[in-house]
Amino acid sequence: MDTLRLAIVGYGKIARDQHHPAIANDPRHRLTAVASRNASVPEVANFESLEALLEQGPEIDAVSLCTPAGVRTQQARLAMAHGKHVMLEKPPGATLAEIETLREDAERHGVTLFASWHSRHAHGVAGAKRWLAERQVRRVDIEWKEDVRVWHPGQAWIWQPGGMGVFDPGINALSIATAILPRPFHLVDAQLQVPGNCQTPIAASLDFVDGENVPIHAEFDFRQQGTPPIWEIHVETDAGRMTLEAGGRRLLIDGKLQQEGPDAEYAGLYARFAELIAEGRSDVDVSPFRHVADSLMLGYRHTVEDFIE
Rank of each mutant, 00 (worst) to 15 (best):
F222M: 14
P21V: 01
S64F: 09
A45T: 03
G261P: 08
E236G: 02
R5W: 04
H186Y: 14
T3S: 09
E236K: 04
L78E: 03
N213W: 04
I216L: 12
D238N: 15
W157P: 00
P201S: 07
G93H: 04
V235H: 05
G226D: 03
V86C: 05
R37E: 08
H121S: 14
A62W: 07
M242W: 15
P92M: 02
K256D: 15
G247W: 05
A81T: 04
I8K: 04
R139P: 06
R183Q: 11
T95M: 00
V292I: 10
I23N: 02
E48V: 11
F47P: 01
G165H: 09
I176W: 05
A97H: 08
E43P: 03
R281Y: 06
V44I: 06
W144F: 13
L251E: 06
R120I: 13
V292W: 01
W159D: 07
D283H: 15
L174T: 01
D207H: 14
W157K: 07
Y266V: 01
W231Y: 12
H186R: 15
Q75A: 05
Q136A: 11
G154A: 09
I253D: 01
L174N: 06
R139Y: 03
D210I: 10
F289K: 07
S205F: 14
I60D: 07
Q225K: 15
L251W: 08
Q259G: 10
D105H: 04
V292A: 08
D168H: 14
Q199I: 07
C198M: 15
E51P: 03
M1S: 12
D17V: 12
H20M: 11
S295F: 00
G93W: 03
A79P: 03
R120P: 12
S295I: 04
Q56C: 03
E265C: 12
T95Q: 04
I233N: 02
E98D: 05
P228C: 05
A106Y: 11
L174P: 02
H118Q: 13
T112V: 10
P229W: 12
H123W: 14
V125Q: 03
A39I: 12
D254R: 00
N197A: 10
L206P: 00
V214N: 09
L102E: 03
R301W: 13
I99L: 13
V34D: 01
T95L: 00
A190M: 06
S287G: 05
